[in-house]
Lab assay of single mutants.
Amino acid sequence: MLDDRARMEAAKKEKVEQILAEFQLQEEDLKKVMRRMQKEMDRGLRLETHEEASVKMLPTYVRSTPEGSEVGDFLSLDLGGTNFRVMLVKVGEGEEGQWSVKTKHQMYSIPEDAMTGTAEMLFDYISECISDFLDKHQMKHKKLPLGFTFSFPVRHEDIDKGILLNWTKGFKASGAEGNNVVGLLRDAIKRRGDFEMDVVAMVNDTVATMISCYYEDHQCEVGMIVGTGCNACYMEEMQNVELVEGDEGRMCVNTEWGAFGDSGELDEFLLEYDRLVDESSANPGQQLYEKLIGGKYMGELVRLVLLRLVDENLLFHGEASEQLRTRGAFETRFVSQVESDTGDRKQIYNILSTLGLRPSTTDCDIVRRACESVSTRAAHMCSAGLAGVINRMRESRSEDVMRITVGVDGSVYKLHPSFKERFHASVRRLTPSCEITFIESEEGSGRGAALVSAVACKKACMLGQ
């Protein structure tokens, strides 16, 4: 009897593995994704193909990295998701002549009506938060230079001027797309009239992360975010950046690689679950690469896999709870928690219980395998993109072996128990001629924006502006 049951459990697990095998990517698959990513990057950089390229390769006008001589107080704003952060950054000489960066910050959550109302409502709310922060720190009387981390696709015309191309991540505030974001912020500050600010720089969160990590390690020339969304930036040779005049030196390019796949480059790798996630998203047909990796989508992918296993009578005796059938019910943090389970399955059992399920031991094991399959594919897909960037940098610099540091931020990278190990191992397999160091950014977005502002202020002083 026991043997029969054991055989049935083994057969069930084997069927589960057959279904989950769809998520496995072979090294040849990853090399294919990497080569296609490089081709799209090239198209994004070139003037004649930029418009139709899915990977936009947006110039950021960040050319210099901090040298350690900029000092002063800077205000930093960070808008990239449902939370908005205001930070005071003091850049100065530390002990023994070292450079020191001290920060104080406060988080504000953005109400739904500000995210989806008008641009005026959104930026009025942001300036209200700045006003509140300055009151708390008794700094209303000071006109501070301000660095703005704005983590949406922007076409820069200068370091302090950028046109919002399109909202992502659930934002829909009308009247912002096609307009200068810094102008919208300046107008809102003017409307309030109770404080003055000098907006000197606007950067993407990947750029802010790279600059913040450069402060720790001067070989950091790539910034990457794996959180709600997924994106990367890197220092490109100016001669390859056709959208900006000049051939000397390097400029940081914001790849906006989340949109890779929007022209069909990933079609052969998309599964039924991916198509369902895409169809029910706020932007169907867009940001397809990001939807395979980002935390906004990972939990939902797992939920759809679990429903398939229920329908195949391989999980929960073929019956799903009402909660499990509800879109968004299986949160991405559950994926991390399930994979963090120590082996007694308590954590998995508790999560499934909150979803109205009474799982068996085998159910718990199957749910864990589903989570591992989805998150491992995410790590491997992400590795193909980064390997594409790094191999490109090595080739354009004609280096036999390139040493490089990548600064990384984002909740999936930082909080998932195995993502970074799987990701690092896969990147290294795909970049055999590179020695890569990964560092995690601390308060990256805010500190990085302030350091970019410090560079901009120093330049302005040198130019006598």
Rank of each mutant, 00 (worst) to 15 (best):
M8S: 11
E9M: 14
A11R: 12
K12A: 10
E14F: 10
E14N: 09
E14S: 13
K15Y: 10
Q18V: 13
I19Y: 13
L20G: 07
E22F: 08
L25D: 13
L25C: 10
Q26G: 14
E27G: 10
E28H: 15
D29M: 05
L30I: 07
L30M: 09
R36M: 05
R36Y: 11
M37W: 01
E40S: 10
D42V: 10
E48L: 07
E52S: 10
A53G: 01
S54V: 12
V55M: 05
K56R: 04
L58H: 00
G68M: 14
V71A: 15
G72K: 05
D73N: 15
L75Y: 03
L77H: 01
G80P: 03
M87A: 09
E93K: 01
G94H: 12
E95G: 12
Q98P: 03
Q98I: 09
W99G: 15
H105C: 04
H105V: 04
Q106C: 08
S109E: 06
P111S: 09
D113W: 11
T116R: 06
G117N: 11
L122W: 01
I126W: 00
S127K: 06
D132H: 08
D132Q: 02
H137E: 09
H137Y: 07
K140I: 05
K140A: 04
H141K: 05
F150L: 05
S151A: 02
R155Y: 07
G162S: 01
K169S: 02
F171M: 02
G175I: 02
A176F: 00
G183P: 03
L185G: 00
R186P: 02
D187P: 05
D194W: 00
V199Q: 03
V203F: 01
N204C: 06
D205Y: 00
T209M: 11
I211E: 15
S212R: 00
C213T: 11
Y215V: 15
D217K: 15
H218L: 10
E221N: 04
V222N: 00
G223A: 14
G227Y: 00
N231P: 05
C233P: 03
C233W: 04
N240T: 09
V241E: 10
E242D: 08
E245L: 12
D247I: 06
D247Y: 14
G249C: 08
R250P: 14
R250N: 08
E256N: 02
G261I: 09
D262A: 13
S263R: 06
G264N: 04
E265I: 09
D267P: 13
E268Q: 11
L271T: 08
L271F: 03
E272N: 08
E279I: 13
S281E: 11
A282N: 15
A282D: 15
A282Y: 13
P284R: 12
G285H: 10
L292N: 07
I293F: 01
G295A: 03
G295M: 02
G295N: 00
K296Q: 15
M298L: 15
M298E: 08
M298N: 04
E300P: 04
L301A: 14
L304T: 11
V305W: 06
L306F: 08
L306D: 01
L307P: 01
E319G: 14
L324M: 13
R325H: 12
R325F: 14
R325A: 14
T332Q: 14
F334Q: 14
V335A: 13
D341S: 11
L352A: 08
P359W: 11
V367K: 08
V367A: 10
A370P: 04
S375H: 00
G385H: 01
G388N: 05
M393C: 11
E395Q: 05
R397A: 07
R397L: 08
S398N: 13
D400H: 14
T405N: 14
V406E: 05
Y413R: 00
S418F: 09
F419N: 06
R422A: 13
A425P: 13
S426C: 12
R428D: 13
R429Y: 11
C434E: 04
T437L: 14
S441D: 10
E442D: 15
E443G: 11
G444A: 11
G448N: 00
A449M: 01
L451I: 08
L451G: 05
V452H: 05
K458Q: 13
K459T: 14
A460S: 11
A460V: 15
